[in-house]
Design a protein around this nucleic acid. Structure first.
Length: 668
DNA sequence: GTAGGGTTAG
């Protein structure tokens, strides 16, 4: 035996293992350090890039490699087909047409690529012309039909198959479930059971159905099936093959975690003889989903080799609890961070309102060579919306045009971002571009944008257009419509819309709707009516409801109701300074100094501190945040000097115009 | 080291 052969085989194994553990960069370093690479070495690394959707890197290796075999070609084709874009699929097809020698895998790769992306006609024409077919070719067609909702074609193909294996049955059963036909799926399984008795394939079909029941939340039925599969083989019956495998256990555990029954999930987990990485990850993610990070972390620590899913579950768990420091700790400790890890951190910061950090992470991610996808872009767009960072948002819009083909959620984020940045024209431009793929969220975004910017009448016009096009509004639509009416002073219209929400659409009013109604009435001077509404509303009023009343009292200078509202607010949020401050200012404005002082004393006695106000400005793609009495900005001294200068100019003008404040003509 | 189904992360 030649020693160097054994050597390169060992290295190839090492590369494969690194790729399996998500350490692609390390695999690349091993590859680069090798002197005796063979075709398998090249193919292994290409496979790593393909698995990680780095198609350009895969192609570069493919073009550079000295000798390509049929596996190299097949790997590249499968990489292109998995990218799903029509351009990439075209590239894959081009390679297929150009390759010197095709095998069954080549044909099946292209067929399933077409089938998965709804191009059944292309899939079918290849299927019909291919020299010979195997069970994989048939299964790919069945799956494709089911994914496109063509259930009868799928069943027809299934029946025409010359031979079937466990994947054929699983494909049909799971496809039927995804088309909402659980009963038919169960029927197929029953037929299959009588035909093939206690074979291994039956277990796979059972597992599919268990998972299907789990998806629809029917744990009892799933458990009934699970219990029908014997735990251990029954030797007396000669039943050697029909027994639970690790997927049966994992699927059942998943059913329990899905409904939050972690006790039962854990019982099964502890009962298992052999757990695989999926068992561990399913349990961890179950604990994460019900916010039990302690147990999640216990299990995580017990794992010998956590993979990227294990790490990312922990990161997302802590991020959801707002513990970004702990999330970051896991993020930093993981052996190799991939796109999902970055996305989890960015989404975590964004959802916790730390928009600057979300954007900072986004920039760092790109510096480290990771390409954003739709998840990244959607989070970052929300962060830009939160900061009203228009230039950043525009730059990301450009990225979107290069990265995503047509994606409704992303377009909706763009609409929201432009709205929040105050450029409704841009928001409308996006809204008009996606005419064909609008959903109710697109409408909510554009209506909300107009309402938010004070264009109540325009918001209502958009709502009417939405109704004309028979788009069914949601409860959020009505929060926005009521807010639009409030801003436009259309009290009667608002009340009419509220009634129509209940009577026409059967939407049960939520506390947010009452807050909007209180705002609608109060803002337009109907303070007593707003108060009466609070007294009679069927839900407990929350801070938004009382806040709306208090704001209205401030505008219309009703001190007595303001006191009621402020009292209610301090009961709900004892630590908030806003109601005290607002009430203090109102009393002081009215010259009621004794009561004002009393409010101030009460605030101090209750240990409430005034929270510093803050504002921000976007300049040269950077967002600068200013907090009162904060000197952390690099140009703090200069900024304060400038403010003082402005202050002087304003004061001079103020006195010069004999106490008549007129900002309109000031040219600073 | 490559093709189809069923279990895990954003």
């Amino acid at each position: 035996m030649r020693p160097f052969m054994a050597k390169s085989r060992e290295w190839n194994k090492k590369i494969t293992k690194l790729i399996r553990n998500g350490r692609l960069c390390e695999a690349r370093r091993v590859f680069d350090s090798m002197t005796d690479r063979n075709t398998v070495t090249w193919n292994s690394l290409i496979s790593g890039y393909v698995q990680n959707r780095e198609i350009a890197s895969a192609r570069k290796l493919f073009d550079e490699m000295p000798e390509r075999d049929v596996v190299s070609w097949n790997l590249m084709i499968s990489g292109y087909m998995a990218c799903r874009g029509s351009r990439e699929m075209g590239d894959g097809r081009m390679l297929f047409d150009r390759m010197p020698e095709r095998d069954l895998v080549s044909w099946n790769t292209v067929i399933s690529g077409y089938a998965r992306n709804g191009r059944m006609r292309d899939a079918l024409s290849l299927f019909d012309t291919m020299p010979d077919r195997n069970v994989v070719s048939w299964n790919a067609m069945v799956t494709g039909f089911l994914q496109n909702g063509e259930v009868s074609s799928a069943v027809e193909f299934f029946e025409r198959m010359p031979e079937r294996d466990s994947a054929s049955v699983s494909a049909l059963v799971s496809g039927l479930i995804h088309n909402g036909r659980l009963n038919e799926a169960a029927e197929i399984l029953e037929n299959f059971r009588t035909v093939c008795g206690g074979e291994q394939e039956l277990v796979d079909a059972y597992n599919t159905l268990i998972a299907g029941y789990g998806q629809s939340g029917n744990v009892e039925e799933a458990r009934r099936l699970f219990d029908q599969i014997p735990y251990r083989p029954d030797f007396r019956k000669g039943d050697l093959k029909f027994r639970r495998n690790v997927v049966s256990w994992n699927s059942m555990i998943m059913c329990y975690t899905k409904v939050g029954d972690l006790i039962s999930a854990r019982q099964l987990f502890d009962e298992m003889d052999e757990r695989d990485i999926v068992s561990w990850n399913t349990m961890i993610s179950g604990y994460v989903q019900c916010s039990n990070l302690e147990e999640a972390s216990n299990l995580f620590c017990m794992m010998s080799e956590p993979d990227s899913r294990s790490w990312n579950s922990m990161i997302s768990g802590y991020a959801h609890q707002g513990k970004l420091d702990l999330a970051l700790d896991f993020f930093n400790r993981m052996p190799e961070r991939r796109l999902v890890s970055w996305n989890t951190m960015i989404a975590g910061y964004e959802q916790n309102g730390d928009y600057e950090e979300a954007i900072r992470f986004f920039c760092q991610m790109q510096r480290e060579g990771e390409k954003p996808d739709r998840h990244t872009l959607s989070s970052v767009l929300s962060a830009c919306a939160g900061l009203a960072a228009l230039n950043q948002g525009k730059a990301i819009h450009q990225r979107v045009l290069k990265t995503v083909i047509a994606d409704t959620p992303i377009s909706n984020s763009l609409i929201t971002m432009y709205s929040r940045c105050g450029v409704l024209g841009e928001a409308l431009a996006v809204f008009n571009e996606v005419k064909m793929q609008r959903d109710v969220i697109s409408w909510n975004s554009i209506i909300g944008g107009h309402a938010y910017q004070g264009f109540g009448v325009e918001a209502l016009m958009l709502y009417k257009e939405m109704r004309r096009l028979k788009v069914r509004p949601t409860y959020i639509t009505f929060i926005l419509v009521l807010s639009a009416c409030a801003h436009a002073g259309l009290v009667d219209e608002g009340l009419r819309q509220f009634k129509s929400m209940v009577s026409e659409f059967g939407i049960e009013p939520q506390v947010e709707h009452f807050a909007s109604l209180v705002d609608l009435l109060g803002r337009n001077g109907y303070l007593q009516e707003a108060m009466d509404l609070i007294d009679t509303m069927p839900i407990e009023p929350d801070r938004a409801v009382w806040g709306a009343l208090l704001g209205a009292c401030r505008v219309h200078d009703n001190v007595e109701l303001a006191i009621t509202a402020a009292k209610a607010l301090t009961r709900l949020e004892p630590e908030s300074s806003a109601p005290y401050v607002l009430l203090y200012n109102m009393l002081a404005d009215g010259g009621r100094w004794d009561e004002a002082t009393e409010v101030r004393t009460m605030m101090e006695r209750n240990g409430v501190k005034k929270q510093p106000g803050y504002s921000w400005i976007e300049l040269n793609d950077k967002v600068h945040v200013f907090v009162a009495a904060d000197a952390s900005h690099p140009l703090s001294t200069e900024i304060h000097a400038l403010i003082e200068c402005c202050d002087r100019v304003i004061k001079d003008l103020f006195y010069a115009t004999e106490n008549v404040l007129c900002f309109n003509n000031i040219d600073l």
